[in-house]
Amino acid sequence: MKAEELLPDNQNQVTINGQEIRKGSIGAFLLNCKTVINLDKNSNEYKTAMSNIKEQALLLEKIGLFEVFEVKIPEIREALINS
């Protein structure tokens, strides 16, 4: 399946396993994950990114992303386990 078959250009969201997913959800999750790698854990930017990661992860878990992909960044993996 190609991306445009799942979510055509004229459509901004899709429902998977009863969960509405907006275009860009997985990309935003990945960018937030990459962002926290180089940030001071006490910074507001780090805390905001981690908050976004946890919120996005709940959605991505519901569609089964973590059944096929493992989070390798230890602090993110730990945060997801504890949330």
Rank of each mutant, 00 (worst) to 15 (best):
A3G: 05
K34C: 15
L6W: 01
I37L: 13
F66T: 10
K34W: 13
N44M: 12
L6R: 00
T35D: 10
P74E: 03
E78H: 02
R77F: 04
E55R: 06
E55L: 07
G24C: 07
T35H: 07
I26W: 02
T35K: 08
L30G: 13
L59A: 02
S25I: 09
V68A: 15
E75C: 06
F69L: 15
Q13P: 12
A3V: 11
Y46G: 10
I37F: 09
E75G: 03
Q13I: 06
N17H: 08
E5I: 06
P74A: 06
L6S: 01
I81D: 10
E20R: 00
K2T: 11
N17K: 11
K23M: 00
A28Y: 10
Q19W: 00
I73Q: 09
A57D: 02
P8Q: 07
D9N: 05
I76K: 00
L39G: 10
K34H: 14
P74V: 06
G27L: 10
G24E: 06
D40W: 03
N42C: 03
T15P: 12
I63W: 10
L30C: 11
E78G: 05
D9I: 05
I73T: 10
K62I: 00
A57Q: 01
D9F: 01
M50K: 12
I73N: 10
L80Q: 06
I16K: 12
Q56M: 07
L59H: 01
E20N: 04
I76A: 05
I63H: 09
E67F: 03
I73H: 09
L39I: 09
E5L: 09
G24D: 07
Q11N: 12
M1A: 15
N17A: 14
L60R: 00
Q19S: 01
P8G: 11
G27C: 11
K62Q: 00
I21E: 02
N82T: 09
K47Y: 10
L59F: 02
I37E: 14
E5K: 04
S51C: 14
K47G: 12
E78S: 09
F29K: 02
A3Q: 06
N32V: 06
A79N: 04
T35I: 08
V71W: 01
G64C: 04
P74M: 02
T35P: 05
E45A: 15
A79E: 11
L80S: 08
L6G: 01
R22D: 05
E61H: 00
P8V: 11
S83M: 08
G27D: 12
A28T: 14
L6D: 01
K62G: 00
Q56T: 04
E75M: 04
F66M: 04
F69A: 15
T48S: 15
I16Y: 14
E55W: 03
T15I: 15
V68W: 14
N12Y: 13
A28K: 13
V36D: 04
E67N: 05
L58C: 08
N82A: 14
T35N: 08
L60T: 03
Q13S: 15
L31I: 07
E45G: 13
A3C: 08
G18S: 04
G64H: 01
M1C: 13
G64E: 02
Y46D: 11
C33L: 13
L80E: 04
